[in-house]
Design a protein around this nucleic acid. Structure first.
Lengths: 318, 318
DNA sequence: GACGTCCATAAAAGGACCTTATCGGGCGAG
DNA sequence: CTCGCCCGATAAGGTCCTTTTATGGACGTC
């Protein structure tokens, strides 16, 4: 015979209410079930825990001692289990996120707002980083998920597409090229270009496209922050090439925006460790980033973390 | 699905050893059993606790948190259960005992010695009291068992015979009555009698017997302590009537002892609350009082407390 | 003295659990 | 690159446990 949680809970209920019958009602079982449970528990422990009297039940010495201790310990255990269930139900939890600066300042805030509406208790620990650094942080376990762009980072990281982001040419409203709806790369190549640093995903997209067109990407000026480039464009220093998500663009409405020819897109992706389940909080954030929950009702959301992420490591292209 | 102790233990073993297969070996089950157990636990909690990878298992964030807390809590729970098992196995425990002074000084010490040989960790809290007080203390729950004599104390107390104790006449070796092998009550009635107090069981036995013989019990001297009466008898003050268990008799070998005519016996009994199971420690003491364990082998002794004392309240004679 | 309450027991249905056997995926060696 | 090994998942089958329904015995009450 084995000590079971069910048996212990039954014992505690009976000891507390001094009655098999009443405890049975509270536990939603019949009285004989408790008789058997207690017999099992008493056999497992090797002594009598409850003295059955005609008018009810009285714990023995040992039973009273056990009940006293068990009361605390089972409450603690239930508390522990409830905490885990809170994680699952997204009533608790923190997502550690590493995101591209353009996403962090652009679509991310609204996603966090959506997440808070559905799961007010969840928290996000945000760190901004460029793609390579995002991958490193995810790989090292420093963050739960990353938002990055660029090529597949390797077999140990899994990626799921989030959205596509257009690369725009940002130029003063009176610039001659504003007459064109799209600005060809070969035209751009002759202009003074204002670019982010070369380890960014935008730079990589541009570099690839220029190379494919037989051109060479030679920036007139580079900067770490998008707003610096915008300031330069406002001053007429040249043409800035920026992702459309960059929220700083909204603060410079007088600047013209033009897509390129060919239209260059940057694929923004969620990255996480392959073969590792996303925490429920991380799932909630991904859902919010996608615009809404993939599983609208709570029950399905609760089952979600189990069904999701059974995928194994994705094969990296050689 | 329900959280079970077995499932939690399985989870902890797997999380600790990072492997279903290894944990299965340690838990003496097969690996599929653990797969099912963990699936049940994860379903009950609503999230994934373990990430299965080709080379083993890695706890998820939630799983790691659960494992950390559970480790402590299950250890505490096991400790609690082990404590109860110690009670059952008589490796721990205290008997609160109220006993007649004659028994406490007479057969009890040897019984305690026998108990200590078998169960060295058990302790006895002894209180000496006369029969009426013993009954009261047992009834009030102040002690676990009592040793008393005399008539049935009522329906709420159960009694089991322990031994029979002869009432002896104690007289100086040169007393004329020493010529008689048994001393008739009518002879005694004419002698100066040295008796214990009137609330004692010996007094009651004598009183009943004298009354049945149409005699009147009128002590020449009364005392609380047996040794006082012995001293008086040594001084030639009269004839002391004492139970044969009184150990003080052994310290006065020069005094003569004679049974009465009719032979008066005092039935010494173990008393405990009716319908209440004796604690294992109390059972051990009763066994020792009886001269040896009623269940010699440990296994049967362990099962003993369960089978014993299923009897309901014994009917008191009206 | 009939009745209600309480726990124990018995039998049967239902479910949970474990074991054996097998699968599929990943990894390392040859 | 393929074979063999290790890992966990799955399926099927049987056993054991658990629960429910129905009933019994003991006790207290009206």
């Amino acid at each position: 015979m084995d000590v079971t949680l069910k048996g212990l809970r039954a014992f505690l209920a009976i000891a507390r209410h001094r009655s098999f019958t009443r405890a049975a009602g509270l536990l939603h079982v019949t009285q004989p079930a408790l008789t058997v449970q207690i017999r099992g528990l008493e056999t497992a422990l090797g002594l009598r825990l409850l003295d059955r009297t005609p008018q009810g039940v009285e714990p023995t010495e040992a039973g009273a001692e056990l009940a006293r201790v068990l009361e605390v310990q089972l409450r603690d255990l239930d508390h522990t289990l409830e905490n885990v269930r809170d994680l699952a139900a997204r009533r608790r939890g923190t997502v550690r996120l590493a995101a591209l600066p353009s996403v962090a300042s652009g679509p991310l805030p609204r996603a966090m707002l959506r997440m808070r509406e559905r799961h007010p208790e969840l928290r996000v620990q945000l760190q901004e980083a460029v793609t390579g650094r995002v991958h490193d942080m995810v790989r090292a376990g420093m963050v739960d998920i990353g938002i990055a762009s660029g090529p597949p980072p390797g077999p140990d990281l899994a990626r799921e597409p989030l959205f596509r982001d257009r690369v725009l040419a940002i130029l003063p409203a009176d610039h001659p090229l504003t007459s064109r709806r799209r600005i060809p790369l070969e035209v751009l190549a002759r202009e003074p270009l204002l670019l982010l640093e070369s380890n960014t995903s935008v730079w990589r997209v541009l570099d690839d496209a220029f190379a494919a067109a037989g051109l060479r990407l030679s920036p007139f000026q580079q900067a770490v922050h998008t707003s610096s480039l915008i300031g330069m464009a406002q001053a007429g220093l040249g043409i800035a090439l920026l992702p459309s998500t960059a929220v700083e663009l909204r603060m410079a409405p007088e600047l013209a925006r033009r897509p390129l020819q060919p239209d260059l897109m940057r694929e923004v992706m969620v990255v996480h460790r392959a073969g590792r389940t996303l925490s429920p909080a991380a799932e909630a954030l991904v859902e919010a980033l996608r615009g809404g929950p993939s599983t609208p009702d709570g029950a399905a959301a609760l089952a979600g973390p189990l069904s999701a992420c059974t995928a194994r490591r994705s094969r990296g292209r050689s």
